[in-house]
Amino acid sequence: MAYFQRSPLTPWLLLAPQLIIVSVFFFWPAWQAVQQAFYIEDAFGLSQQFAGLSNFIAVLSNPDYYSVIWTTVVFSLSVALGAMSIALFLAVLADRVIKGASTYKTFLIWPYAVAPAVAGVLWLFLFDPSLGLVTALLERLGIEWNHNLDGGQALLLVILASVWKQMSYNFVFFLAGLQAIPKSLLEAAAIDGANPMRRFWTIVFPLLSPTSFFLLVMNSIYAFFETFGTIDTVTSGGPGSATTTLVYKIYQDGFVGQNLGTSAAQSVLLMMLVGGLTFIQFRFVERRVQY
């Protein structure tokens, strides 16, 4: 390719706005997070003292932290698998019917635009212990619902609200993936005598695996971070810490508990975790580009 080479200053002018914003609002805070993780601040925030790894040790030696990790894993996997399997099921149906596929897409796509916090409110209303519709139905079945008291129910409720919001994102990708499968491949399989079920599991599903992997990563990231709004409106991390995820704990320790050092140490640990996840995805994306 021929590039613009004559004006050595132009690229820097073009990059300047983004570089400045990224430095001020990304690298500076990220660096501070790393720094804070190694310091202890006194109760009045007046002086700081180098603390080595003691913040990390404090975080990692606290059994609560592991229960939060466990909650995060259960929550993220449930959200990812739930939102993906429902989306795949609906996408296969929509791809099958041809007529009306785009209408169904319109009717299924909009929850993407609903804020996680709003999604939380909608589901909170459905399951409100005193006036929710679903609560009333469950009561007839003999199930007593009160997510303010029952940790398992609280977790289930935030999972439901998160799945509801994330499904449409997955649906868009699965439908696009399905529509990109060459019809000749399915025809060849049909001629080879494979029935529709068999065709799905032996041809369609393997061909969708890149999409599925990508979505698994995206859904995990969604469950890690974006669901903060859902959790905060529905349960505020409770009851107890039944719905406290890693991000929610950083917020609680840092802003509510004012424990900057351990909050920062948790941020650094989470950064490493997400960095690893994204790295895997990047490697994967790079590989896909060459197809």
């Binding site: 001020v24 805070p29 971070f225 920062a264 997400v274 994204t278």
Partner: peptide
């Protein structure tokens, strides 16, 4: 590299910067 770390992870220090 900013793709890797959403604002939620570095929320506290970002707050201080702002």
């Amino acid at each position: 590299i900013t793709l890797m770390l959403p604002v939620e992870v570095r929320i506290l220090p970002t707050y201080e910067v702002v």
